[in-house]
């Protein structure tokens, strides 16, 4: 399969595994490459990433550009960009798919500006015109109040970032074949830029894995205080065997740590159960959780938009509702 003018994905890893967005990108990439009758490739950077290249092949990559090198262990945007630029110049993909992640959203504009390509960020739907090869995309604007449909103008490179949990992941198969091309050595060079990675920093709420959680109890500005957040949000989450989350309102009021933020500029989640307490349900927040299986809203305001998204709702003061709800849930879960 011809890789040039095809689809390339930017593979990311988390704790030594391919991250879930990468599997989604492979699923999307397979669909688009099939439609355009072109090859699908992946670019994988990091240290000790070699075993994952085979996995990308199993997920459908015709070629994997692998830069497995100690100097890529940590993220230096300028070094990462130079490696990927080299891969793009070599492989000449027409389309580059990246996750709307910390690295994907950082790298995409760098590359698009460098190659003067077309760029669309945070896409939730993507398709390609099989004749022109140009992408059409749907992405949120105005904080998610509206969605914009757009198409790329003719460009030698089209870069997009894709919203987590918006695409069906690729299914692995053992019998696939693909080429693994090592590029790390070639791209290494002597980095003379002004950026130096110093250290990673763990954040208190880091152990909370919102993206993978089955149950999330989230609190908003209406929770009123840090004590209430601890008692009702974290406490209820513990009873349900879930994790706590927060809206931007709770963060701005300093009730909750920043890493718990769910929404447009925070985490995108889709648990089985999402309990929203004292959250008004502004679209910027709901963008991050509206695909949850069951949404429960507890709010004093019967007009709060949370009830437009919720499957179950109680209108009333959470300080009265939640203790009874917590106790009953605990009771039910014991039996």
């Amino acid at each position: 399969m011809d890789i040039s003018a095809g689809v390339m994905i930017f593979a990311e890893t988390a704790e030594g595994k391919l991250s879930s967005i990468t599997k989604e990108l492979m699923g999307l990439g397979t669909r688009l490459a099939g439609k355009l009758e072109k090859g699908l490739s992946a670019v994988l950077l990091g240290a000790g990433t070699e075993p994952l290249a085979t996995e990308l092949v199993n997920l459908g990559a015709d070629a994997v550009y692998l830069a497995d090198d100690a100097f890529l262990e940590n993220y230096n945007p300028e070094q990462y960009a130079s490696v990927i630029e080299h891969v793009i110049q070599t492989a000449k993909p027409a389309i580059l798919l990246m996750g709307q992640t910390s690295r994907g959203a950082d790298m995409a504009p760098r590359l698009a500006f460098k190659f003067r390509g077309a760029l669309a960020m945070d896409c939730v739907e993507l398709d390609a015109d099989s004749e022109t090869g140009l992408l059409t995309h749907t992405r949120p604007v105005y904080g998610g109040i509206a969605m914009a449909r757009a198409r790329s103008r003719a460009a030698s490179l089209q870069v997009v970032t894709v919203r987590a949990k918006s695409q069906d992941p690729a299914e692995p198969a053992d019998d696939r074949e693909g080429e693994i091309i090592a590029v790390g050595e070639r791209a290494r060079g002597e980095y003379a830029g002004g950026m130096k990675f110093l250290r990673p920093v763990a954040v208190e709420a880091d152990e909370v894995n919102l993206e993978e959680a089955n149950i999330i109890v989230a609190g908003g500005r209406g929770v009123g205080s840090t004590e209430n957040f601890k008692r009702f949000i974290e406490g209820f989450a513990r009873i349900l065997g879930g994790v706590p989350g927060a809206s931007r309102g709770a963060l701005d009021s300093d009730f909750a740590p920043a890493n718990l933020q769910i929404g447009l500029t925070g985490k995108i989640v889709s648990p089985q159960l999402y309990v929203a307490i004292g959250i008004s349900g502004m679209v910027q927040h709901m963008t991050g959780c509206s695909s949850s299986k069951t949404i429960v809203g507890i709010n004093t305001d019967p007009d709060a938009s949370i009830f437009k998204y919720a499957h179950f709702g109680i209108v009333g003061d959470f300080e009265q509702v939640v203790p009874a709800l917590m106790q009953k849930c605990e009771e039910l879960l014991k039996n």
């Binding site: 500005r221 209406g222 009123g224 309102g249 701005d252 009021s253 004093t300």
Partner: peptide
Amino acid sequence: KKELEPVAND
């Protein structure tokens, strides 16, 4: 909007 109304009930 940001600071006063959120504590109006309190």
